[in-house]
């Protein structure tokens, strides 16, 4: 269903974009009274000058120029030269030959969007059911638990290390793992979180999660810069924020 939805959206977009230019390109098949008085926004028609140019690849001279007003005589000249459409400055829904194609494209986009949304809901429901069976690390809760464990592990182990250098190295090493593996894993579970908590709840949860992640990032930077005290304080704050995030996730 999702594939059909996306194909419908793509086809409708192509159709809509293709139909759009004709909004300003009235057909010269229209009666004169609908065209007379319109102003050209591009030149129209082509004729070879007399004498013809020496370069056989020359494109010729336009029959009418931009800003020329369409008159009965000019229309007749353009039609006799085989010109089918001209680009004008004025828009009229009635003159727009591609309007039905465009409306079809609009319907297609709405239909495609509906199919994608229905499929998305079904998949979310299915993923919710499967969540219990999924390995813990793959779920947002599992990823958060892993991040929390990285922070708590550091809080446990750091006091037992002998030098700040060892502590800083441990912080950089373990937080790198959390930053590059567990944080992205948590974020990839956004659809599950939205399904469980709604958009508002998701936003509130991510607000806390992001605050925690920033403290982790700061702890990493401070450790890399050799400012251990700052790094340790950031870990403390990250720990409290991880707890808040977990409460929101489980609440």
């Amino acid at each position: 269903m999702k594939l059909v939805g996306f194909l419908l959206i793509t086809a409708s977009l192509v159709l809509g974009v293709a139909a759009a230019p004709t909004a300003y390109l009235p057909s010269l098949d229209l009666p004169d009274e609908e065209l007379i008085g319109l102003t050209l926004n591009s030149s129209a028609g082509a004729q070879m000058p007399d004498p013809p140019p020496s370069d056989p690849t020359a494109a010729g001279e336009p029959i009418a120029n931009q800003d020329d007003e369409l008159t009965a005589e000019l229309l007749a000249t353009l039609r006799s030269a085989g010109v089918e459409r001209v680009r004008v400055k004025e828009f009229s829904f009635a003159r727009w030959s591609g309007k039905w194609l465009f409306l079809l494209a609009v319907a297609g986009l709405i239909g495609g969007a509906a199919l994608v949304r229905i499929d998305m809901r079904k998949r979310l429901a299915a993923s919710k059911e499967a969540q219990a069976d999924a390995p813990a690390a793959e779920s947002p809760a599992g990823a958060l638990a892993a991040i929390t464990e990285a922070i708590e592990g550091l809080r446990r182990d750091l006091p037992h290390m002998t030098t700040d250098h060892d502590r800083e190295a441990a912080i950089v090493e373990r937080l790198t793992e959390a930053q590059s593996v567990h944080v992205p894993a948590f974020v990839e579970g956004r659809e599950r979180i939205i399904a469980d908590h709604g958009l508002g709840g998701f936003a509130e949860l991510l607000d806390r999660f992001a605050a925690m992640e920033r403290q982790i990032n700061r702890a990493w930077s401070a450790a890399a810069d050799g400012v251990y005290e700052e790094s340790a304080d950031c870990l403390e704050r990250a720990s409290a924020l991880a707890e808040e995030t977990a409460k929101l996730l489980n609440g």
Binding site: L154, R155, L158, P159, M161, T162, T163, D164, H165, R167, E168, A169, I171, V172, A223, A224, D225, G226, V227, Y228, E229, A232, D233, L235, E236, R237, A240
Partner: peptide, 27 residues
Amino acid sequence: DPPPPATPNPDTPPTEAGRIGGALPPS
């Protein structure tokens, strides 16, 4: 006199038990 760090600095003196635990320090 902050250290000129590029990687965790081995010369930084150890801090008291790593300042871990206790009340949450304000930002």
